[in-house]
Design a protein around this nucleic acid. Structure first.
Lengths: 112, 112
DNA sequence: GTAATATATGAATAGATGTTCATATATAAA
DNA sequence: TTTATATATGAACATCTATTCATATATTAC
């Protein structure tokens, strides 16, 4: 029972009950992963202002339509955006009010 | 000037001035990327409660010490954790109050 | 000094990710 | 029906990432 071993043993006993739940951490990391790509962030930021159809997003970000479509699929699957069809066009918009808050907090952090 | 082309042209003009700044989106995506890994999230959650040394974190999360050290390096570099040395041990703790807010908002989202 | 413990780090590897290309589907226009 | 436009999607590819392994450094104990 050396002194540093004592410190460490008591510590691990103390934190055993606050060890995070695996599934919750998996879900949370996947949630943040959606925000971890510049293209997806750009899409979210421009959709924050108004709903837009796919090719306008692609044109605005100067990227290929397929790249945008793939990213929109990820944003749809994580339910951060919704869409409505109107003729040939598909209009995308933000689906969740949490998003603005998350983006805002992140921006505040990096601007410090 | 077909009707749908009119719609789209006016749209792109409207959003030209709100197209996100590339560098800002890069920085922001890198910030969120740190939160996009379950191991790093677990580390942040247990450090939220108290400062801990490396091998205790590894033991608590049932992971190898080297894996934890590598992740702590990333957390250090993004200045989300700080550390102090005491003999053989290195004690890590959270460095930023924004972190708790970010984690809280994320958790609220996935629990809906 | 040597041995044991705590931590850090470079290299290797397997798996994940974003974009592009080719192409399919769907709607509208002619 | 044919043509053009808007969007979606699977496959391929290059890049990135998290972990492991081997090992280096540093401190303490003997």
């Amino acid at each position: 029972m050396g002194s540093d071993r004592e410190i460490c043993n008591s510590s691990i006993d103390d934190i055993k009950f606050i060890i995070p739940v695996e599934e919750e951490m998996q879900d949370l990391s996947e949630f943040f992963k959606v925000f971890s790509d510049p293209t997806r962030l750009k899409i979210l930021f421009i959709l924050e202002k108004q709903e837009l159809c796919v090719h306008i997003i692609a044109e605005a970000l100067e990227m290929q339509q397929t790249a945008i479509s793939h990213q929109l699929k990820i944003l749809r699957q994580s339910r951060l955006v919704k869409y409505r069809k109107e003729g040939k066009h598909v209009y995308y918009s933000l689906n969740d009010n949490h998003i603005k808050e998350i983006l805002k907090t992140g921006l505040e952090h990096i601007k410090e």
